[in-house]
Structure formats: C-alpha cells, structure tokens
C-alpha cells in the first residue's frame, strides 16, 4: 500500500465513523482522537474499520501506533 492509498483508506473509514470530520485539517503528528473529537468508541471503530478493510490483523499492542495520521500511514504501508 502506498501513502496515498493509506490516506484514501483512512478517509473512507473515517467517513463512516465521523462523516463531517476532515482528515485534511489534522496535522501529521496530531492525535486523531483529539483533533477530530472522536470518543474512545469512535476511535476504536475507526481502527477496527482499518483492520477489516485491509485484512490486516492489528493486535492490541499496536493500538497506540495508530493514534496519529503519520502513525496510521506508516503502519498501513508497512503491513502486508
């Protein structure tokens, strides 16, 4: 997966969790949860959405790696 594809995927998953949220407004290193006003259930739903649409099994210990835009992109592009 390329960076662009990763961002595209994040956008489409996020659209289901928080339709009005705009990924473009979030800085690369900013906490997604805080920047987009996601509660912990929203954020979990977002991560689960990433796992389900890519087929990547995300173990719980990797949860923290997905807290930012750059974290998500790095995780998605390096996973198979």
């Amino acid at each position: 997966m390329t960076n662009v594809e990763a961002l595209q995927l994040m956008r489409s998953v996020l659209a289901k969790v928080a339709p009005e949220a705009d990924l473009g407004e979030v800085a690369a290193g900013e906490s997604l949860q805080e920047a987009l006003d996601l509660d912990s259930f929203d954020f979990l739903t977002f991560v689960i959405g990433l796992a389900e649409s890519t087929g990547i099994e995300i173990p719980d210990r990797d949860f923290a790696k997905l807290s930012t835009v750059e974290g998500c992109v790095a995780y998605l592009t390096s996973a198979h």
Binding site: S40, L44, I48, A51, P59, D60, R61, D62, F63
Partner: peptide
C-alpha cells in the same frame, strides 16, 4: 485482558 485480543475484541474502560 486486551493483550491477547485482536483489536476487534478490544475492551474499553467505559
């Protein structure tokens, strides 16, 4: 409890 779970079965404090 979450250690061995896939993220789809993660429990949250609330």
């Amino acid at each position: 409890a979450n250690l061995d779970r896939p993220v789809t079965e993660r429990l949250l404090l609330p």
